[in-house]
């Protein structure tokens, strides 16, 4: 008998392989249909497991809780608290450059809300401390015709934007503390933006400049299709609960 085509130990029998593939496709489709609800339940279980897990390994499972590190730059940029500067310029009466100490001497605000990423993960009750953007804008004196803010970052790549009205909200701040500790390098320290009611890509890490402009200049991810007005639960096609 020929070794190709017919005959041989493996050439007859049940087509189990095809059935397994079809079963996988069925399971995959079913999982994609109900997965949204399942993940919520698994998140709750994993959150309680992670809280008691000394190894931290459970944090690596999908939905295992905690922050995930996203950066578009090639390395983690570093500025020491002494070297750090924040410039405020553009359509303002008094452009300024602030040191970290100067920011910390301004009226401080502490907000405790959830952090919601547009990719789905959420970290509950995360305290941020810093200076409200509205205070910095008042210090600089916004000139007529100003409509928006552009944020630049010392990673050299990232940028973000807010309208003037959004920036004046009492939950939009320049944060220098997270979890009541100085913001770490990996989390965007020493100073990052914290746009509490919006998806976390708006909260630019490694903030180095605020420029007041006459129109909204879309930020980094917004060039790749993310919404400019990134309200949690009301943008990017998502329906997450508000972060309050």
């Amino acid at each position: 008998m020929s070794s190709d085509g017919t005959g041989g130990a493996d050439r007859a029998g049940t087509p189990v392989g095809r059935r397994v593939i079809l079963a996988m496709l069925g399971l995959g489709a079913a999982g994609a249909t109900v997965g949204g609800y399942l993940q919520n339940g698994i998140d709750n279980v994993l959150a309680s497991v992670t809280a008691k897990d000394p190894t931290g390994l459970s944090g690596l499972l999908p939905g295992g809780g905690g922050f995930r590190f996203y950066s578009v730059a090639d390395t983690i940029p570093h500025r020491s608290p002494a070297d750090y500067r924040l410039t405020v310029d553009g359509l303002v009466e008094r452009p300024a450059t602030y040191t970290l100490a100067q920011l910390q001497a301004m009226p401080r605000t502490r907000l405790v809300k959830d952090v919601q990423c547009v990719t789905g993960w959420r970290v509950p009750h995360t305290p941020f401390t810093g200076v409200l953007l509205s205070h910095l804008l008042d210090e600089a004196g916004v000139r007529p015709g100003a409509k928006a803010l552009t944020f630049t970052c010392f990673d050299g790549v990232y940028s973000e934007s807010l309208t003037l009205d959004q920036a004046r909200r009492p939950d939009m701040m320049v944060a220098y503390a997270m979890d009541d500790r100085p913001v770490t390098d990996a989390h965007g320290g020493p100073v990052r933006l914290y746009a509490a009611p919006m998806y976390f890509y708006k909260s630019a890490k490694w903030l180095s400049g605020i420029t007041v402009t006459d129109h909204v200049q879309p930020g980094y991810w917004e060039h790749y299709g993310y919404d400019v007005d990134a309200w949690v639960g009301k943008s990017n096609g998502r329906t997450d609960a508000p972060t309050d």
Partner: peptide, 13 residues
């Protein structure tokens, strides 16, 4: 959206 959340769930696991 519900498919996207579910797809992320399936893709991750």
């Amino acid at each position: 959206l519900i498919w996207r959340t579910g797809s992320t769930f399936v893709h991750d696991w």
